[in-house]
Every structure is written in structure tokens, then in C-alpha cells.
């Protein structure tokens, strides 16, 4: 089954890193195939950044996302540019404190930035919170694979913080927050 995941937010939120972690986790720790791509233009610096991951059990031939079925949106501008057109059968996780609009598809409201700041004291790990919620909500890779992917991607000394952020993301789904 081919899953196409699209991440968007603003520069500095770690949108690209989120996608890389997801792809790496799928390939290295879940024995799946993945292709990660991103928008490189100068508009990706300050404005809406976007990155995409395709995950599939089979070989991935066409490497670009055509019809994303999973969205992770972390800014209003990102929503308008990359999330607003989500088809009805898609699922979206959005940072509820930063995205004001709501899509017409199924969605989860994840207060990732606020919770990262309040509970972990570091808003910088909001992207990892979103990744935790993404995996808990969709099961596109295993939680164990995600954990291994995070540990092999984040800077030394921040492992504990990032794992707590991931688990916070799991909890926010378990707590039933953001059910559509």
C-alpha cells in the first residue's frame, strides 16, 4: 500500500527533518521503502516549507507525491498552500494552535507547539510531537521504528528530550485530543 505523506509549516519548525526521520525510520527500522522529497526554492526559507514522504512495502517507482493521503500541517500559510486542497478521503494532523482553518477531510487537532512548550519547555520539538501523533494515528510505520529513526537523526544530547516529545505525540492521540 502506497502512502503519500505531505508535511508543511514555516521555516525553522523542522518540517524537512520530520520527513527525513519518517523516511529513514521506514527504510532502516521497518523494512519498508520510502522516498523523501522537498521544496528547495527560496520561498521555502521564510514562507511555507514543504516536504513529502512516500512509504510503500513495494518498490517506489515514481518518486514524487501525486495524491497525498496524509497531511501534517504546522502553519496557517502551510495549510493554505499545501493543505487546503486535501481530498475527502485524506487524513490531516494539524498543529491546532498555529493552523486556524480546518480541512474538509478527517483531521486531528494536535496542540503540538503549545504542549511542547508547556510540558517539555522546548517549542523546538513540536515537529517530533507531530511525528509521534502521526504514527499513533495512522500506523504507517511502527512506533519502535519511529523511535529508532528519531534516535539516529537528532543531535547528541537531545535524545531524551526528543523521545519524550515523541511520546507526548502518542499521548495526545491516546488522550483523544483532536478526534475529528
Amino acid at each position: 500500500m502506497r502512502h503519500e505523506v505531505r508535511f508543511s509549516g514555516f521555516g525553522g519548525q523542522g518540517i524537512i527533518l520530520s520527513a527525513v526521520i519518517l523516511g529513514r525510520a521506514a527504510v532502516l527500522y521497518d523494512n519498508k521503502n520510502a522516498v523523501q522529497t522537498q521544496v528547495y526554492g527560496p520561498e521555502a526559507r521564510g514562507g511555507a516549507s514543504m516536504s513529502a514522504v512516500i512509504i510503500d512495502d513495494e518498490d517506489i517507482l515514481f518518486p514524487k507525491v501525486i495524491n497525498p493521503n496524509i497531511f501534517v500541517i504546522m502553519s496557517q500559510e502551510g495549510f493554505l498552500k499545501y493543505g487546503a486542497g486535501a481530498p475527502g478521503n485524506a487524513v490531516m494532523l494539524l498543529d491546532s494552535g498555529l493552523v486556524h482553518d480546518r480541512p474538509s477531510c478527517r483531521y486531528y487537532e494536535i496542540p503540538a507547539s503549545r504542549e511542547a512548550k508547556d510540558r517539555l519547555g522546548k517549542i523546538i520539538v513540536a515537529n517530533i510531537v507531530m511525528l509521534g501523533s502521526l504514527v499513533a494515528a495512522t500506523g504507517i510505520i511502527t512506533k519502535e521504528a519511529l523511535e529508532a529513526g528519531i534516535l539516529s537523526s537528532v543531535p547528541k544530547g537531545t535524545e531524551d528530550l526528543n523521545i519524550r516529545a515523541m511520546k507526548l505525540g502518542f499521548d495526545l492521540i491516546m488522550e483523544g485530543k483532536g478526534e475529528p
Binding site: G23, V27, N33, A34, V35, Y40, I60, P63, K64
Partner: peptide
């Protein structure tokens, strides 16, 4: 090309 150079995969 940029597509192959910039994408990540296995």
C-alpha cells in the same frame, strides 16, 4: 538531475 540528486531513498 535535481530530482534524483535531492531525493532521499534506500
Amino acid at each position: 538531475d535535481e530530482a534524483i540528486g535531492h531525493m532521499r531513498e534506500r
